[in-house]
Simulated assay, not measured.
Amino acid sequence: MFDVFSLPEGVIVSTQQKFSDDRGWLYEGYNISRCPTELRQLTISESDANTLRGMHVHYKRHDYVMVVSGALILGLVDMRPNSDSFRKSSCLILKPEEACTVYIPLGIGHGFAFQEKTRYLTGLSVAWSPEDEFLFRYDDPVLQFDWGVNEPILSEKDRNAGSFESAVRQYLEAASGSQGG
């Protein structure tokens, strides 16, 4: 499915134990004893085919992602200059039948693309805030992603996002300010 060595440092992909019978299946999507952070908010999203959301990075919030229906292409890139995996990027495809969850730590840029209508959950370690979201272009040359989506449907803010380098500067400035205050 994916090579864990290709992931940016700190990203955790977990395959949960899945229980199936004649009625269907279930898996435990979140258990605090197996996640590096406690979740404070849960968002449920639906995206249409050919939609692309992101890229963005957070300095206050960890994310935890799982797919409910459809398929999510998750692009990841390390934006922490002091990290051994700075600029390392990778893409994963998440589907509900694979029972995978992904933990995304602070400083890991991420975005989502969809080739089909998809529903997914995102757990947040702190409540969502626009001040904790720095955007950059999904097609920035640093990324070298194949999103698998031609002519993506973008929000206005994603269409007008800046460069990877600009987002790294914004992230560092905000992160250093939050540690000092």
Rank of each mutant, 00 (worst) to 15 (best):
Y59R: 12
A161G: 08
E38M: 13
V149F: 06
T101M: 02
R159C: 10
S33I: 11
D146C: 07
R34V: 13
R23W: 02
T15Q: 14
T15C: 15
R23N: 04
A167K: 00
S129A: 02
E116R: 15
S90I: 03
Y27P: 11
T118Y: 03
Y59M: 06
L172F: 12
Q115I: 09
S166W: 10
V77L: 10
E46L: 13
G54F: 00
N50V: 11
V168P: 09
Q179P: 08
D139R: 09
S69E: 09
L39A: 10
G123M: 09
V68R: 05
T15L: 12
A175W: 10
L76W: 07
D48W: 14
T51I: 09
D139K: 08
S178E: 04
C91L: 12
S83W: 04
K157W: 03
S45H: 09
L154Y: 03
L135W: 03
S83C: 01
L42Y: 01
R80C: 08
S176H: 05
H56F: 11
L52E: 00
G75M: 04
V68H: 10
L39F: 05
G177P: 00
K157I: 01
E131A: 15
H58W: 00
Q41W: 01
S6H: 06
Y120V: 06
F2A: 12
H58P: 06
H56M: 07
Y59V: 01
I108D: 03
W25L: 14
G29R: 02
Q170E: 02
S33G: 08
V77D: 09
R61T: 13
V13A: 06
Q179K: 15
V4G: 15
N82G: 12
N31W: 07
P8E: 00
F112K: 05
L7P: 14
I108K: 06
G162P: 11
H62V: 01
S129P: 02
V11G: 03
V57Y: 03
R169C: 11
M55L: 09
E173T: 13
Y171H: 13
F114N: 05
E116H: 09
F86A: 04
V142C: 14
T118Q: 05
T118H: 08
I32C: 14
G75S: 06
M55W: 06
E151V: 07
T101N: 07
A127V: 08
S125C: 04
V65Q: 02
T118E: 05
P36G: 05
P81L: 02
I108F: 00
D158W: 05
D158S: 03
I108H: 07
P152C: 05
I32K: 15
G181T: 12
N50H: 07
V57C: 01
K88A: 00
C91G: 13
I12N: 11
R159S: 14
G54N: 03
G162R: 00
L7S: 03
Y30E: 01
V102C: 04
G177E: 13
A71R: 03
H58E: 04
L106I: 13
L154H: 07
F2R: 07
L52D: 01
S90T: 11
